[in-house]
Amino acid sequence: MLEEVLFAGFGGQGILSSGMLLAYAAMAEGLHVAWVPSYGPEMRGGTANCGVTVSDLPISSPLVAEPTTLIAMNRPSLDRFEGDVVPGGLVLYNASLIDREVLRTDVRVLAVKANEEAERLGSVRVATNVMLGAFLAITGAASLRSAAEALQKVLPPHRHSLIPANERALEAGARIASRISSKLGLWGPGIGSVQP
């Protein structure tokens, strides 16, 4: 198993911490992991992205140049990274902020209105974890339970009040992905696409 996931969005969307959550969750399950951040000079409002590699073998290059999955949280991220995804890979995008469809026809696509979903759960700040929940349900890279447990480590103590909202976000994302996949048989060997 080798998953090379690129989380991309703008500063403040929790891009780096969602990536870290995946890394912690997979590490807890005994997998090899690496987390590499890259962000613009401004912490908030600038572009932010991080690459997370999860593998059952030792990781040689931890740099995610050709992601197996792209989680795009805003339009500039989709524009910039859509072309890099490996053929047959997965594109999860935030349809709340992205007003176009994915142009690639050789990748699997799932659009999720992550901001709306997150707001419904209590905080727009958990939107990226809605996407992470969907990713985990589709790929099985780590269990939802490991991700939920890792929240303790990723969130600083003064943010632990947000753990329940984050757990709900992970579950909601997983539910959305499973509902769609069971309906369409989407995540099997073929190429599928679910867009608004």
Partner: peptide, 9 residues
């Protein structure tokens, strides 16, 4: 900078 800022177990 990559080695400095990346995270690994």
């Amino acid at each position: 900078g990559v080695l400095g800022q990346m995270m690994e177990p």
